[in-house]
Amino acid sequence: QVALSRTQVCGILREELFQGDAFHQSDTHIFIIMGASGDLAKKKIYPTIWWLFRDGLLPENTFIVGYARSRLTVADIRKQSEPFFKATPEEKLKLEDFFARNSYVAGQYDDAASYQRLNSHMNALHLGSQANRLFYLALPPTVYEAVTKNIHESCMSQIGWNRIIVEKPFGRDLQSSDRLSNHISSLFREDQIYRIDHYLGKEMVQNLMVLRFANRIFGPIWNRDNIACVILTFKEPFGTEGRGGYFDEFGIIRDVMQNHLLQMLCLVAMEKPASTNSDDVRDEKVKVLKCISEVQANNVVLGQYVGNPDGEGEATKGYLDDPTVPRGSTTATFAAVVLYVENERWDGVPFILRCGKALNERKAEVRLQFHDVAGDIFHQQCKRNELVIRVQPNEAVYTKMMTKKPGMFFNPEESELDLTYGNRYKNVKLPDAYERLILDVFCGSQMHFVRSDELREAWRIFTPLLHQIELEKPKPIPYIYGSRGPTEADELMKRVGFQYEGTYKWVNPHKL
């Protein structure tokens, strides 16, 4: 086992960053958080920038500027975001240094004079007029057009580079997404736009490419001749908990499936790229999406959770019991969808996408189930092999396979070949997804960000279904809070070829 401390991990990262040409360590950078008073800024962006600063992973002359409508001070920003920093008493001095680099400007999102004030403020910072500028839009999409237009007109660096990070949702359907994309691309070049999907920053999602293309053993079996089906799962054990009003506007397909799960599907299904260059990788992902037809209604199961009468606390409440959810809402909190990649490698292999709230566990994984062994000599005792990439929690890679049961006879039983990170790298604290992705933006690497043509294809696949749901308002199937979801989803999976045995229990190697 390799035991690495946080300091050692960050030392390795620093070495990698400083050796590259793309990370300008000594240049002045300004990180501007648009929507600095909001939840995302408070819980994710400010803490992430602090962790990067604490670990010495930001360029040395980096300033952080918050911008929002609320009249706040840096002290206010500190008060609301610091509880999420997880700072230790030993880091007190470092924390003071961090907040000394912070400033805040209040202004409207659609007022040109406010942006001119913001620009004057940035120019007044040390070497601010020639600094590289990175704008993070932690804002609702309704203000994107006004904000990007004003940034472009008043706040661009004339000497350094300018980059803009856009948070999902990128529209509600193909038409609104196209409108937003066309607007942003009329102001910024594609190499300046970073559409963030934080799932692409997760260690195991990034590991998929290495697993596939750096190991000879997987190449020959990664196709329709050997793989019976692919299941991509995202499960949350909690409901909307008072935030249903926002969720109800989008629903589970827009929230998770059309982005996170579809991105994971691309990494499983794509061909080997010409290189690890950002556009070479994204070219292959677009090719996969172009091979997927629009979702067919007979390959869809929609569910909505109801309270568990035997549960406790939140578990007793259904989705419609959330006071922020519109009365009688038919918005799905669970969806199972089957897609097919219609190309030579994957023809006929079902890709089953499942996601839901208020389920029995927290889990995100990719599961490849292989065909049955031909010419069975073990009297149907063999179960199908599976390769599982567990994204969260407890990152893991393992192969479910058959071995001989101890004893006199040739009785096979299920076991696993474990390729888990935790076994080799004991207690290594890896940077989280937002840390990686923000560092990628500083480096100018777009590999783990969504390109406009990729986004367009993703919406093309799901828009007809979303429009049909909005028009017909089908009643989702009720499922109990804390269950596996509607049984109809299991029946759909069985119908397209997935075999669920229920006889195997994964042993978490992190707890051995």
Rank of each mutant, 00 (worst) to 15 (best):
Leu437Thr: 01
Lys494Gln: 14
Arg354Thr: 04
Leu387Lys: 03
Ala274Gly: 14
Met402Pro: 03
Phe334Trp: 06
Glu342His: 14
Leu267Val: 08
Asp376Met: 09
Asp321Pro: 05
Asp283Asn: 12
Val306Lys: 12
Leu302Ser: 08
Asp376Ile: 06
Cys443Val: 15
Val388Ser: 06
Arg484Pro: 04
Trp506Glu: 05
Cys382Ile: 14
Gln392Trp: 01
Asp376Glu: 12
Val337Lys: 02
Val441Asn: 00
Pro323Leu: 15
Cys291Asp: 11
Arg362Gly: 09
Gln381Trp: 07
Gly313Lys: 11
Met257Pro: 06
Val341Gln: 04
Asn299Pro: 07
Val450Trp: 00
Pro474Trp: 11
Gln263Lys: 04
Lys505Arg: 10
Ala433Lys: 00
Pro350His: 04
Glu395Ser: 12
Gly407Thr: 07
Glu365Arg: 02
Gln468Asn: 13
Asn411Lys: 09
Tyr305Thr: 00
Tyr481Pro: 05
Gly313Ile: 12
Ile438Leu: 12
Ser452Gly: 15
Glu312Ile: 10
Arg362Ser: 09
Ser415Thr: 14
Asn385Asp: 12
Arg460Phe: 03
Gly307Cys: 10
Tyr481Asn: 13
Tyr481Ala: 12
Glu491Ser: 13
Arg456Met: 08
Pro431Gly: 12
Lys383Cys: 15
Leu455Val: 05
Asp310Lys: 14
Val300Ala: 13
Met401Ser: 04
Glu314Met: 10
Val366Trp: 00
Val306Tyr: 12
Ala358His: 02
Met270Asn: 02
Arg451Leu: 02
Val281Tyr: 05
Val300Pro: 06
Lys494Thr: 14
Phe370Met: 10
Gly328Glu: 13
Phe378Leu: 11
Glu491Trp: 12
Glu342Leu: 13
Gln380Pro: 11
Leu471Phe: 11
Pro350Thr: 01
Thr316His: 09
Asp322Glu: 08
Pro406Glu: 01
Gly328Tyr: 13
Glu454Asp: 06
Cys382Gly: 13
Ile377His: 08
Val300Cys: 15
Tyr425Lys: 05
Gly485Phe: 04
Val428Glu: 15
Pro478Gly: 12
Thr487Glu: 15
Asn427Met: 12
Leu261Cys: 08
Ala335Gln: 03
Arg451Phe: 07
Val281Cys: 10
Asn394His: 09
Tyr398Glu: 01
Glu413Pro: 02
Trp459Arg: 04
Val507Trp: 14
Leu430His: 09
Arg362Tyr: 07
Lys494Trp: 12
Thr333Glu: 06
Gln446Lys: 00
Gln381Cys: 09
Met447Val: 09
Leu368Gln: 03
Tyr500Gly: 02
Leu437Asn: 03
Pro412Glu: 09
Glu435Tyr: 05
Thr463Phe: 04
Ile438Glu: 02
Thr330Asp: 10
Val450His: 03
Val338Gln: 12
Ile469Gln: 13
Glu344Trp: 07
Gln380Trp: 10
Thr330Val: 15
Glu472Pro: 06
Thr333Gln: 03
Ala335Cys: 12
Val256Lys: 03
Ser275Ile: 05
Arg367Tyr: 04
Gly356Gln: 02
Asn277Ser: 15
Arg451Asp: 03
Arg390Tyr: 05
Arg484His: 05
Asp440Val: 00
Leu267Trp: 02
Tyr398Ser: 03
Asp372Thr: 06
